Computed example of a mutant assay.
Amino acid sequence: MFDFTPLYRSSVGFDRLFQLLDEAAATENQTYPPYNIERVGDNEYRITMAVAGFGPADVSIEAKGNTLTVTGKKAEKGTAGEMLHQGIAARGFERRFQMADHVEVKGADMDNGLLHISLKRELPEALKPRQIAINGVAPKLKAIDGEKAA
């Protein structure tokens, strides 16, 4: 764990970066549930989480600001018999992902114990590159060897 206090005193506007670093260090040791993050296209991403034993009703996905939170809570069920070994994890979880600006959640699917969350970066028109016309006086044409200038 790093102390960013000296940097706060000598920098302006980097507080979000320091907060992200603090959160990354805090969640570094979290291993459940396992997940993948993949780039599907130039501006498209997919998070895949292994949520075996959880159904769509047991998992909630919330996008708030630049934070995506996936929470899983299993309803308590009594078993008919005595559990001798429980190797399948049924504990609840909460996993947070920090998203870049202009990244939006497009949808989520659950298939064979895997939760797929589709993300897409969509830049607003105001941030996309555009050509700027140059206003000025039209160039004057020079007469060449006896021709009249236009």
Rank of each mutant, 00 (worst) to 15 (best):
L141N: 15
R95H: 04
I117E: 00
L20I: 07
R96V: 00
G13I: 03
D3F: 04
A149G: 10
V51R: 00
F14T: 10
I117R: 02
K148V: 14
E23R: 10
A80F: 13
I132W: 08
G146R: 06
G146L: 02
I37Q: 06
N66M: 08
I144G: 03
I61M: 05
E62N: 15
G53D: 05
L127T: 14
V51K: 01
K73N: 14
L115V: 01
S118K: 11
V12G: 07
K120S: 10
K140A: 15
A25C: 10
A52F: 08
R130P: 00
V137R: 12
M1S: 14
Q86H: 09
N36S: 14
S11I: 05
G92K: 08
K142S: 12
K148T: 15
R130N: 09
H102F: 12
K64D: 12
V59T: 02
A149R: 12
L7W: 09
P56L: 05
A143Y: 08
S118R: 11
G146P: 01
V51H: 01
T71E: 11
G146I: 02
T67F: 09
A90N: 15
Y32Q: 03
G136P: 02
E62L: 12
E125H: 07
M49F: 00
A63V: 10
I144T: 11
L20A: 13
F4V: 07
H116Q: 12
G65Y: 08
R9N: 14
R96L: 00
E44I: 05
Y8D: 12
V40T: 13
N66R: 11
V105Y: 03
N36Y: 10
D3L: 06
I47K: 00
L21S: 11
A50M: 03
D3K: 10
K120T: 04
S11H: 15
N112V: 11
V51Q: 02
L114F: 13
G13N: 03
L68T: 01
A133K: 13
D111G: 05
L127A: 14
T79F: 10
M49S: 06
K120R: 12
E44S: 14
T79V: 11
P34A: 12
R46M: 08
E122C: 02
I47H: 02
G72K: 01
P33N: 09
A26P: 03
E122H: 07
N36G: 13
P33F: 02
T79I: 09
L123C: 04
A57T: 15
N112G: 14
P129C: 05
A80T: 14
V40I: 08
G107P: 05
P56D: 13
S60Y: 09
R121D: 03
S11W: 11
M110F: 06
Q86M: 09
L68G: 00
G92N: 15
L119E: 00
D22N: 12
R91S: 15
I37R: 01
Y45S: 08
T27S: 13
Q30S: 12
A50S: 12
A50R: 02
A24M: 05
M83S: 13
E82V: 15
G13Y: 04
V40Q: 03
M99K: 02
V40H: 00
L119Y: 02
A90W: 01
S10K: 10
T48H: 02
I134F: 13
Y35V: 03
G136V: 05
L7Q: 08
E125W: 08
A24Y: 04
Y8L: 13
R96P: 00
G92W: 08
